[in-house]
């Protein structure tokens, strides 16, 4: 069920992924690069998904169209 809790669950997952990225980044001079890039990517993607999900959580308007044929409606 994808309801309002998904955002929180998603956050937990993303934090877990970030932690994994932090600890499993390859060692060496570029470790800081790996960490920052991975975590920043995960965070940006989560932010975008969460915003999209929240925008549809309690919609203020409904889809409306006039060009549908009867056979198509129930698909």
């Amino acid at each position: 069920m994808a309801n309002g809790w998904s955002v929180i669950i998603g956050l937990v997952v993303v934090v877990a992924m970030s932690l994994a990225a932090w600890f499993f980044s390859p060692k060496g001079a570029n470790q800081v690069l790996w960490r920052s890039s991975l975590i920043l990517s995960i965070a940006s993607c989560y932010l975008m998904w969460a915003v999209t999900f929240l925008a549809q959580l309690h919609p203020l308007i409904e889809p409306r169209r006039t060009d549908l044929r009867k056979e198509y409606i129930h698909h």
Binding site: A2, L57, P63
Partner: peptide, 11 residues
């Protein structure tokens, strides 16, 4: 209790 889980609803 159900919302489109990923991205914009295709409807």
């Amino acid at each position: 209790n159900y919302r489109y889980p990923f991205g914009l609803d295709w409807r």
